[in-house]
Amino acid sequence: MFILKRQDVEIGNFKHPSKEQKIPILSYQGQTFRLLSVFNAAQEDDARSLWRDLTDNQGKACVLLEEPERFSVWGKIHLEKASAETVAVPGVSNVFVKAAVIIIQAMYEDIADLMGDKQAKRFEGDLVAIGTQIRLPDMTSGALVTHLLEADPFSAPLPAWQTNHLNTLFKELHRIGKSYFGHSNFTERALEALDELSSTERDAFLTWLKQLSSGQLWQ
Protein backbone atom coordinates (compact mmCIF):
# COMPACT_ATOMS: atom_id res chain seq x y z
CA MET A 1 0.00 0.00 0.00
CA PHE A 2 2.65 2.52 1.07
CA ILE A 3 6.45 2.67 1.00
CA LEU A 4 7.43 5.45 3.41
CA LYS A 5 10.45 7.09 5.00
CA ARG A 6 10.86 7.80 8.70
CA GLN A 7 10.21 11.53 8.22
CA ASP A 8 6.83 10.72 6.60
CA VAL A 9 5.33 9.11 9.69
CA GLU A 10 4.85 9.40 13.42
CA ILE A 11 5.70 6.42 15.63
CA GLY A 12 4.45 5.97 19.16
CA ASN A 13 3.14 3.25 21.46
CA PHE A 14 -0.29 1.85 22.24
CA LYS A 15 -0.75 0.23 25.64
CA HIS A 16 -2.04 -3.32 25.38
CA PRO A 17 -5.43 -3.32 27.13
CA SER A 18 -4.89 -6.61 29.00
CA LYS A 19 -1.13 -7.03 29.28
CA GLU A 20 1.73 -4.99 30.67
CA GLN A 21 3.26 -4.21 27.31
CA LYS A 22 3.30 -1.45 24.75
CA ILE A 23 2.61 -2.03 21.07
CA PRO A 24 4.50 0.09 18.50
CA ILE A 25 2.08 2.17 16.44
CA LEU A 26 2.75 4.07 13.21
CA SER A 27 0.52 6.97 12.14
CA TYR A 28 0.27 8.26 8.57
CA GLN A 29 -2.35 10.63 7.15
CA GLY A 30 -4.84 9.79 9.87
CA GLN A 31 -4.37 6.03 9.49
CA THR A 32 -2.90 3.75 12.15
CA PHE A 33 -0.62 0.75 11.62
CA ARG A 34 0.75 -1.89 13.99
CA LEU A 35 4.28 -3.31 13.73
CA LEU A 36 4.34 -6.77 12.12
CA SER A 37 7.98 -7.51 11.29
CA VAL A 38 11.41 -5.91 11.45
CA PHE A 39 14.34 -6.58 9.08
CA ASN A 40 17.93 -5.36 9.19
CA ALA A 41 19.45 -3.26 6.41
CA ALA A 42 20.76 -6.33 4.58
CA GLN A 43 17.30 -7.92 4.43
CA GLU A 44 15.65 -5.37 2.14
CA ASP A 45 14.54 -8.04 -0.35
CA ASP A 46 12.92 -10.09 2.43
CA ALA A 47 11.11 -7.02 3.75
CA ARG A 48 9.80 -6.10 0.30
CA SER A 49 8.77 -9.70 -0.37
CA LEU A 50 6.72 -9.86 2.83
CA TRP A 51 5.17 -6.43 2.15
CA ARG A 52 4.21 -7.41 -1.41
CA ASP A 53 2.76 -10.71 -0.28
CA LEU A 54 0.58 -9.04 2.33
CA THR A 55 -0.60 -6.28 0.03
CA ASP A 56 -0.84 -8.03 -3.36
CA ASN A 57 -1.73 -11.61 -2.39
CA GLN A 58 -3.64 -11.13 0.86
CA GLY A 59 -5.16 -7.71 0.23
CA LYS A 60 -3.85 -6.24 3.46
CA ALA A 61 -3.33 -2.51 3.97
CA CYS A 62 0.35 -2.32 4.92
CA VAL A 63 3.25 0.10 5.18
CA LEU A 64 6.86 -0.69 4.30
CA LEU A 65 8.97 1.73 6.32
CA GLU A 66 12.48 2.37 5.00
CA GLU A 67 15.08 3.55 7.54
CA PRO A 68 18.89 3.74 7.28
CA GLU A 69 19.48 0.78 9.61
CA ARG A 70 16.39 -1.32 9.06
CA PHE A 71 13.15 -2.02 7.20
CA SER A 72 9.85 -2.72 8.92
CA VAL A 73 6.38 -3.87 7.83
CA TRP A 74 3.26 -2.45 9.50
CA GLY A 75 -0.38 -3.57 9.17
CA LYS A 76 -3.38 -1.24 9.33
CA ILE A 77 -5.58 -1.36 12.43
CA HIS A 78 -8.32 0.62 14.14
CA LEU A 79 -7.23 1.25 17.73
CA GLU A 80 -10.73 1.06 19.17
CA LYS A 81 -11.49 -2.18 17.35
CA ALA A 82 -8.09 -3.64 18.17
CA SER A 83 -8.58 -2.86 21.85
CA ALA A 84 -11.99 -4.54 21.97
CA GLU A 85 -10.84 -7.60 20.06
CA THR A 86 -7.75 -8.04 22.17
CA VAL A 87 -9.86 -8.15 25.33
CA ALA A 88 -12.51 -10.43 23.85
CA VAL A 89 -10.26 -13.08 22.31
CA PRO A 90 -8.94 -15.67 24.80
CA GLY A 91 -5.26 -14.94 25.05
CA VAL A 92 -2.32 -17.29 24.94
CA SER A 93 1.02 -16.60 26.57
CA ASN A 94 3.81 -15.30 24.34
CA VAL A 95 5.93 -18.07 25.84
CA PHE A 96 3.73 -20.71 24.19
CA VAL A 97 3.90 -18.97 20.81
CA LYS A 98 7.66 -18.60 21.18
CA ALA A 99 7.97 -22.31 21.98
CA ALA A 100 5.90 -23.21 18.90
CA VAL A 101 8.18 -21.15 16.66
CA ILE A 102 11.27 -22.80 18.20
CA ILE A 103 9.80 -26.26 17.57
CA ILE A 104 8.97 -25.42 13.94
CA GLN A 105 12.50 -24.11 13.39
CA ALA A 106 14.02 -27.20 15.05
CA MET A 107 12.02 -29.54 12.80
CA TYR A 108 13.05 -27.55 9.74
CA GLU A 109 16.74 -27.66 10.72
CA ASP A 110 16.59 -31.41 11.35
CA ILE A 111 15.02 -32.03 7.96
CA ALA A 112 17.57 -29.79 6.23
CA ASP A 113 20.51 -31.43 8.03
CA LEU A 114 19.35 -35.03 7.63
CA MET A 115 17.55 -34.97 4.29
CA GLY A 116 18.87 -31.98 2.38
CA ASP A 117 17.56 -28.74 0.92
CA LYS A 118 14.98 -30.36 -1.35
CA GLN A 119 13.10 -31.91 1.56
CA ALA A 120 13.51 -28.72 3.60
CA LYS A 121 11.77 -26.77 0.81
CA ARG A 122 9.03 -29.39 0.77
CA PHE A 123 8.59 -28.87 4.51
CA GLU A 124 8.24 -25.13 3.91
CA GLY A 125 5.45 -25.91 1.45
CA ASP A 126 3.77 -28.12 4.03
CA LEU A 127 3.85 -25.25 6.51
CA VAL A 128 2.23 -22.93 3.97
CA ALA A 129 -0.50 -25.53 3.39
CA ILE A 130 -1.16 -25.80 7.13
CA GLY A 131 -1.18 -22.04 7.56
CA THR A 132 -3.58 -21.57 4.67
CA GLN A 133 -5.88 -24.36 5.83
CA ILE A 134 -6.34 -22.99 9.35
CA ARG A 135 -5.79 -19.32 8.42
CA LEU A 136 -2.78 -19.10 10.67
CA PRO A 137 -1.34 -15.57 10.89
CA ASP A 138 2.25 -15.27 9.59
CA MET A 139 2.15 -18.71 7.94
CA THR A 140 -0.07 -18.41 4.86
CA SER A 141 2.54 -17.86 2.15
CA GLY A 142 6.07 -18.84 1.19
CA ALA A 143 7.44 -15.41 2.12
CA LEU A 144 5.79 -15.48 5.55
CA VAL A 145 7.01 -19.02 6.29
CA THR A 146 10.56 -18.15 5.20
CA HIS A 147 10.49 -15.15 7.53
CA LEU A 148 9.14 -17.31 10.36
CA LEU A 149 11.91 -19.87 9.91
CA GLU A 150 14.60 -17.19 9.91
CA ALA A 151 13.21 -14.98 12.68
CA ASP A 152 14.78 -14.85 16.13
CA PRO A 153 11.92 -15.92 18.43
CA PHE A 154 13.57 -14.07 21.31
CA SER A 155 13.60 -10.66 19.67
CA ALA A 156 11.33 -10.59 16.60
CA PRO A 157 7.58 -9.85 16.95
CA LEU A 158 5.75 -13.12 17.56
CA PRO A 159 2.79 -14.30 15.46
CA ALA A 160 -0.68 -13.53 16.81
CA TRP A 161 -1.56 -17.19 17.44
CA GLN A 162 -4.33 -18.25 19.79
CA THR A 163 -4.94 -21.55 21.60
CA ASN A 164 -7.13 -22.95 18.83
CA HIS A 165 -4.41 -22.14 16.29
CA LEU A 166 -1.72 -23.86 18.35
CA ASN A 167 -3.83 -26.93 19.08
CA THR A 168 -4.37 -27.57 15.37
CA LEU A 169 -0.81 -26.56 14.53
CA PHE A 170 0.72 -29.16 16.86
CA LYS A 171 -1.61 -31.83 15.48
CA GLU A 172 -0.56 -31.01 11.91
CA LEU A 173 3.14 -30.68 12.80
CA HIS A 174 3.03 -34.19 14.28
CA ARG A 175 1.30 -35.54 11.20
CA ILE A 176 3.80 -34.14 8.73
CA GLY A 177 6.70 -34.87 11.08
CA LYS A 178 5.86 -38.58 10.90
CA SER A 179 5.81 -38.36 7.11
CA TYR A 180 9.44 -37.18 7.15
CA PHE A 181 10.91 -39.11 10.05
CA GLY A 182 8.70 -42.19 9.99
CA HIS A 183 8.51 -42.47 13.77
CA SER A 184 7.60 -40.42 16.81
CA ASN A 185 11.14 -39.89 18.15
CA PHE A 186 11.34 -36.62 16.24
CA THR A 187 9.13 -35.08 18.91
CA GLU A 188 11.86 -35.65 21.51
CA ARG A 189 14.43 -33.90 19.31
CA ALA A 190 12.08 -31.01 18.61
CA LEU A 191 11.24 -30.54 22.28
CA GLU A 192 14.95 -30.60 23.18
CA ALA A 193 15.22 -27.30 21.30
CA LEU A 194 13.15 -25.76 24.09
CA ASP A 195 16.28 -25.84 26.27
CA GLU A 196 16.82 -22.36 24.78
CA LEU A 197 13.99 -21.20 27.03
CA SER A 198 14.39 -20.61 30.73
CA SER A 199 13.47 -23.63 32.85
CA THR A 200 10.39 -21.76 34.11
CA GLU A 201 9.17 -20.99 30.59
CA ARG A 202 9.93 -24.50 29.36
CA ASP A 203 8.06 -26.16 32.24
CA ALA A 204 5.10 -23.80 31.81
CA PHE A 205 4.87 -24.61 28.12
CA LEU A 206 5.12 -28.39 28.59
CA THR A 207 2.44 -28.30 31.28
CA TRP A 208 0.19 -26.26 28.99
CA LEU A 209 0.90 -28.55 26.01
CA LYS A 210 -0.36 -31.58 27.97
CA GLN A 211 -3.72 -29.84 28.33
CA LEU A 212 -4.23 -29.60 24.55
CA SER A 213 -6.05 -32.40 22.76
CA SER A 214 -3.06 -32.58 20.40
CA GLY A 215 -0.59 -32.49 23.27
CA GLN A 216 -0.72 -36.26 23.86
CA LEU A 217 0.89 -36.74 20.45
CA TRP A 218 4.00 -34.97 21.75
CA GLN A 219 4.39 -36.89 25.01
Rank of each mutant, 00 (worst) to 15 (best):
F2L: 05
F2Q: 03
D8R: 02
I11A: 02
N13H: 07
F14M: 07
K15S: 07
K15A: 06
K15Q: 11
K19Q: 13
E20G: 14
Q21E: 13
K22M: 05
P24Y: 02
I25L: 12
L26S: 00
L26V: 05
L26M: 08
Y28P: 03
Y28M: 02
G30R: 15
Q31I: 01
F33K: 00
R34E: 12
L35Y: 00
S37L: 01
S37V: 03
V38C: 12
V38S: 12
F39A: 03
F39P: 02
F39M: 04
F39N: 00
N40R: 09
D45C: 11
D46R: 14
R48W: 11
R48H: 05
S49E: 11
S49F: 03
W51D: 02
D53V: 01
D56T: 04
N57E: 14
Q58V: 01
G59E: 05
K60Q: 10
K60V: 08
K60N: 04
K60C: 06
C62W: 05
V63P: 03
P68W: 08
W74N: 01
I77V: 14
L79C: 06
L79E: 06
K81A: 03
A82C: 02
A82P: 04
S83Y: 05
A84K: 00
V89K: 09
S93F: 07
S93K: 12
N94W: 14
F96C: 14
K98H: 13
A99E: 05
A99Q: 08
A100N: 02
V101G: 01
V101N: 02
Q105V: 07
Y108S: 13
Y108F: 15
A112M: 13
D113I: 00
L114P: 07
L114A: 15
L114T: 14
M115I: 06
G116L: 06
G125I: 10
A129D: 12
A129G: 03
G131K: 07
Q133I: 00
Q133S: 13
R135A: 12
P137R: 13
P137N: 12
D138G: 03
D138S: 14
M139R: 06
M139I: 07
M139V: 02
T140C: 04
S141G: 08
S141Y: 01
G142Q: 05
G142K: 05
G142I: 06
A143T: 11
L149R: 13
D152K: 10
D152G: 04
P153K: 07
F154W: 09
S155V: 03
S155N: 07
A156G: 00
A156I: 00
L158I: 04
A160Y: 03
T163E: 12
T163C: 05
N164T: 08
N167A: 04
L169N: 09
E172I: 02
L173T: 12
L173C: 13
H174T: 11
R175H: 12
I176T: 15
I176D: 12
G177L: 10
K178T: 10
Y180K: 15
G182S: 15
H183A: 13
T187M: 08
T187N: 15
E192Q: 15
E192I: 10
E192T: 14
E192M: 13
A193L: 08
D195L: 06
D195K: 11
L197E: 14
L197V: 12
S198R: 10
T200R: 15
F205Y: 14
L206N: 10
W208V: 01
Q211H: 11
G215L: 11
G215T: 13
Q216T: 08
W218K: 04
Q219E: 15
